[in-house]
Design a protein around this nucleic acid. Structure first.
Length: 413
RNA sequence: GCGGCCGUAGCUCAGGUGGUUAGAGCGCCAGAUUGUGAUUCUGGAUGUCGCCGGUUCAAGUCCGGUCGGCCGCCCCA
């Protein structure tokens, strides 16, 4: 621990930034609610086993990025690296939820991954998350993507994002394709990059997305997943595409879009942008029909996504300005006492009031100015005796005497 | 985990080839008739030059390490 610095890859969210942080969550929650999603929360840490099994032992997230520790009871626990596994665990833990299908959930909170930080990547970061459990129909895929698009639109950033879409097929198609791919790449093993050689073991589909020039040449002739999707997978993918088109949501098919977590099937999608550096994925997700059964629950379809709050913050507009306060500036003990009650009365009527209790007149005016106040209410002994206050408008500089009784109506206007 | 760039006041930065008390703008503080801001004027404080060690008579300036930031790879939100 050196000096008083936050841990690498973690950041304080100071008040100015927090407004934008909360703006992203508030907007997302609001849109999700319009679609009938309910908000819930799960613990920030779970048994390590949950993530290892759910996400996949060979994935990067599990094999090298988890914050894992042993607690005093000698249990291996892990700070959650993503939200889906925890929500599915909660579904399995709380049998009651299985009676509420399709279960439509919105959630938000911090995630933790031990990675090298860079722009748009932190060790503690925050996500908004949307999941639908118990809906195997493509309609759920369409809805979930539609919610995402509407949230990005609400934030004013949809036009700077592109929706990329792909199908990873059902397990049967995927297995066949995977086998074909491994055969193909194995025949070109000597020409593959080192990264891709290790991908061949862990996740051969990833080679398709390689940035290595040599790999790209090999990829040009690689067998295409589209040719290996079975009829059911093709129909499903077509239905999703048709639905998005009907909903007026533009997308691009990206055959190289392969998501890193093992549990995905069928639909995979990402909203990406080129405006925030190399980490261009703003929001991504897909279908995971096998996950809940894998965790020991009743076979239940699932689809969802996670969106990076910090990444959205980098793109989005500032939230609407806060209502400007009125500053209450009483001078003297009697006036201060009177002002306390008056301020509460005004606030109860929805007027933002900052009570000032320090300094001379000049200092108070300066402070009011820094607070971006719209007006200052000055109450001294003279005013107190007359039952009035001096109301100074800080924009025009005009000042006039108003009766205390009339203040609320006047300030509400 | 790998490769590259960077680290000077609260913020943005300037400080040729190492040489006396380290600078600017913005911001901050204090004054310009003690019940009136923002504008203007005047004055002031700002810093162990990220940290530790080394080379040197002498280091903000060179070297090594470390911490942190940024960019790329891996991967992802």
């Amino acid at each position: 621990m050196s000096k008083m610095q936050p841990v690498r890859g973690t950041h304080d969210i100071l008040p100015d930034d927090y407004r934008r942080f909360a703006h992203v969550i508030d907007s997302a929650r609001d849109v999700a609610r319009l679609y009938g999603y309910r908000e819930m929360a799960t613990p920030i840490f779970e048994f390590t086993e949950l993530f290892a099994r759910g996400i996949g032992e060979t994935t990067d997230v599990v094999s090298k990025e988890m914050y894992t520790f042993t607690d005093r009871g000698n249990e291996s626990l892990t700070l959650r690296p993503e939200y889906t596994a925890g929500i599915c665990r909660a579904f399995v833990s709380n049998g009651d939820l299985a009676q509420q299908l399709p279960l439509k959930i919105f959630a938000a909170g911090p995630m933790f991954r031990y990675e090298r930080p860079q722009k748009g990547r932190q060790r503690q970061f925050h996500q908004i998350d949307l999941e639908v459990l118990g809906a195997p129909e493509p309609g759920a895929d369409i809805e979930v993507i539609s919610v995402a698009a509407d949230i990005l639109d609400r934030l004013g950033i949809l036009d700077r994002c592109v929706l990329k879409l792909n199908s990873l097929g059902d397990p049967e198609s995927r297995q066949v394709y995977r086998k074909v791919l491994v055969e193909y790449y194995s025949a070109h093993l000597d020409k593959l990059s080192e990264d891709s050689k290790s991908r061949l073991q862990r996740n051969p589909l990833r080679i398709l997305d390689s940035k290595d020039e040599g790999d790209k040449a090999i990829n040009a002739k690689a067998p295409s997943f589209a040719d290996y999707l079975n009829q059911a997978s093709r129909d499903f993918f077509a239905a999703v595409q048709d639905g998005l088109t009907a909903a007026g949501i533009g997308f691009e098919i990206d055959p190289a879009l392969v998501r890193g977590l093992d549990y995905y099937t069928h639909t995979a999608f990402e909203f990406v942008t080129s405006h925030i550096g190399a980490q261009g994925t703003v929001l991504g997700g897909g279908r995971y029909d096998g996950l809940i059964a894998e965790l020991g629950g009743p076979p239940t379809a699932g689809i969802g996504w996670a969106g990076g709050i910090e990444r959205m913050m980098m793109l989005c507009n500032d939230p609407a300005p806060l209502p400007r306060p009125v500053v209450m500036a009483p001078l003297g003990a009697a006036a201060e006492a009177k002002a306390l009650g008056l301020a509460r009365t005004l606030r109860r009527q929805g007027i933002s009031v900052e009570q000032d209790y320090r300094g001379n007149m000049k200092r108070r005016m300066q402070r009011a100015n820094k607070l971006n106040a719209r007006a200052v209410l000055i109450i001294g002994d003279d005013e107190l005796a007359k039952g009035v206050a001096q109301l100074k408008d800080l924009d025009s500089g005009e000042q006039r005497e108003v009766a205390l009784d009339a203040l609320a109506e006047l300030l509400k206007a």
